[in-house]
């Protein structure tokens, strides 16, 4: 279980997180929604330790994420970055198998390559893609390679930052199904940031809306449409008028 308690973070005078409280139960899929620039990515990165919160606590299974063995902690995570964040100098399969080729659980190259190709297939990419370089792929393909890399080592917890942005509707459906499958079949805990309401409904067990640096609303996805919170209603229906200012 991941638990965030009264987490604050500011950059200069910009107070991005202003007391975030959130619980993500084990083996569930939490989707964070909210307008652009509300700090969703900062929240995700705070859990991973890529951003250090100014105050508040973040625990994983009861242990503060800032203490303990960092390598062991990170080994439990996989992350898909918004832009893919693939390493330009490595071939696609080497990107996917990056963790498998290094560290304590290092695998022989042929085995790591085999696993990489299998993960590429799961995200809808052909084996021929394996030997290409990231710059030779389209943005959507890079995103899927990033997803393959995130799941390659079968981590317990996976973070997805805008997993379907830049993908066509069919491929978005494939990725949504894959994320759902990872949670239900592998028992992984997932935390996803997305603006795509179709993805929210397909992926989420629970939804949290981040607004004004705080969790404005959180609950099961089944209650999302029924809530009378005007912020949530405006966001999920994409209305220009409402309490959320369109100029931010």
């Amino acid at each position: 279980m991941i638990e965030l308690s009264d987490v604050h973070k500011k950059f200069g005078s910009n107070r991005v997180l202003q007391g975030v409280d959130l619980v993500i139960p084990k083996a569930t899929s939490m989707v964070i929604i909210g307008g652009s620039g509300t700090g969703k990515s900062v929240l995700l990165k705070s859990v991973l330790g890529l951003v250090r919160p100014d105050s508040g606590t973040i625990t994983l299974d009861g242990q503060d994420v800032t203490t303990g063995d960092r390598d062991a902690f990170l080994a439990r995570f996989g992350m898909l970055f918004q832009g893919g964040a693939l390493f330009d100098s490595l071939r696609v399969w080497e990107n996917v198998a990056f963790r498998l080729l290094r560290g304590e659980r290092k695998l022989p190259k042929p085995q790591a390559r085999e696993i990489a190709i299998e993960k590429l297939r799961r995200v809808g990419l052909k084996p021929e893609t394996a030997d290409q370089f990231p710059a030779e792929l389209s943005g959507g393909m890079q995103k899927r390679v990033g997803l393959a890399r995130a799941i390659a080592a079968e981590p317990e917890i996976i973070f997805f930052d805008e997993p379907t942005t830049g993908l066509d509707p069919i491929m978005s459906g494939v990725i949504n199904d894959l994320i759902r499958e990872i949670v239900t079949e592998m028992g992984a805990t997932a935390m996803t940031i997305t603006h795509d309401m179709t993805s929210v409904r397909a992926i989420a067990d629970n939804v949290a809306m981040l607004h004004g640096g705080k969790i404005r609303w959180t609950g099961p996805v089944s209650e999302l449409d029924a809530t009378d919170d005007p912020y949530v209603q405006q966001f999920i229906h994409g209305r220009a008028d409402g309490p959320i200012e369109s100029v931010r």
Partner: peptide, 16 residues
């Protein structure tokens, strides 16, 4: 470029 495209963050999440 690696920094602005989050590749350095990705290295960290890959325990590197």
């Amino acid at each position: 470029t690696m920094k602005v495209t989050e590749q350095i963050d990705a290295l960290v999440t890959l325990s590197t």
